[in-house]
Design a protein around this nucleic acid. Structure first.
Lengths: 226, 226
DNA sequence: GCTTTTGCACTGACTAGTCAGTGCAAAAAG
DNA sequence: CTTTTTGCACTGACTAGTCAGTGCAAAAGC
């Protein structure tokens, strides 16, 4: 089994960070660069092993910093993890929202918006598989310290889908019979699980292939002719 | 957040166990009864906290046995967990297969079989929510001792759905364009995630409600009239 | 009958090790 | 000069796994 990729690829990713001007460290203070490296180290380790089985020493070593630096930047291991969750989910929801808005107002139907969000979800998972893995694994845990963070973070993702569904119902495009909350959860699950399977067991498949399969399912084109 | 239910409800559940005849200990040796209680204790704790965060002492305490008994019955904590996984997945796949076969040969189409499997999945999750939670959380972990068990166990579940899809394609009921593997994974994900959401956030909803919502999605009746 | 032995299931104190988090002086960066 | 990072020794709580011993019922011996 191959390890999943990093939270961030080669492209520097910062969300909600103020912009700057210079060259060498583009838009990041030294401190923020260190935090980013800790996120990247933590995300793969926790995705592979789980939160409890991952040690702070491992995270520090993979990030190439001293253990003390972890505690200089984050109050605790849990806090590091919570901020990582918020960070990643921020990226995901922004990307989903953007996809939905992009089809909107320019002739796109709501189904097109859903389809665009499926693709955006797949693109995200393709880039940040480790984060996705970790998200799924931790999302339904109960009795944990970061319980409230999980609730917020789950709601953020599902809400984006719910909004499109609700708008579709109001605009008459979707049946009023649909259960917005359950349908949104089911769609999110469909994409998450299919994508994790893709990455784990058929990584050679193209994103377009996977998108096509899910699109077909969304539009009920499983039975009957193409 | 309420804790999820036990692996076994009040109904005694044993799969692959030989049948007996007498009254007081119905078909179970003392040893097997102990193992069953350890499964039940372990499944809720691990679902809530994860494998690494759950201690053997906790499991023993909840099962009402001494720590040594855990090691008398299982070689290690990991082995206990692996056998728990196999046990639970055995129950699930048996139930899915039965649902599919039940619609078969008696006029039911393949879509009916899929629909019946969705319902069987929901019934299972309704009865064993903790197991489901744990299954989802651990399924895509890499670099762990029980990696191979996870692969087997995942394949068992997805294969049941794949078989129905393949039969549908061969029988001309489903388009040849569909990707059996991806579609099966997506369907499984749809049910798992929607059901976990149901149990976590809207436990008052009836199983029929949830089933109706997923059925609608399966048959592409989201857009358009009811 | 009664004692003694056997084997199974279980017990819980104990060991050896792990890990989150601390403290601090000195170096590097800016 | 201030902020950030380093290196490293240390602690105390916690944990997987062990092991000598207990309880008990059924068999064996007498």
């Amino acid at each position: 089994m191959k390890p999943f990729g990093d939270l961030a690829g080669t492209v520097p990713v910062t969300i909600g960070a103020m912009e700057s001007s210079n060259a060498a460290p583009p838009g990041t203070t030294r401190r923020e660069a260190t935090r980013q490296r800790l996120y990247e180290a933590a995300v793969t380790l926790i995705a592979e092993q789980g939160f409890s089985a991952t040690t702070v020493d491992e995270i520090a070593e993979r990030a190439g910093v001293a253990k003390g630096t972890v505690y200089y930047n984050f109050a605790s291991k849990s806090v590091l993890f919570e901020e990582l969750l918020r960070h990643g989910v921020g990226l995901l929801t922004a990307s989903l929202r953007e996809a939905a808005e992009h089809t909107e107002g320019r002739g796109g139907s709501r189904v097109d918006a859903l389809d665009a969000m499926i693709r955006a979800g797949l693109v995200f998972i393709d880039r940040y598989p480790a984060f996705t893995q970790l998200y799924v694994a931790e999302l339904w845990r109960t009795n944990r310290a970061w319980q409230s963070t999980l609730m917020v973070v789950r709601q953020q993702v599902v809400a984006v889908v719910e909004n499109v569904l609700r708008a579709g119902v109001e605009g008459g495009e979707f049946s009023e019979e649909i259960d917005v909350q359950l349908t949104a959860a089911a769609l999110v699950g469909m994409v998450l699980v299919a994508a994790l399977d893709w990455k784990s067991f058929q990584p050679e498949r193209s994103l377009d292939d996977v998108h096509a399969a899910l699109s077909r399912l969304l539009q009920g084109r499983v039975s009957g002719r193409p």
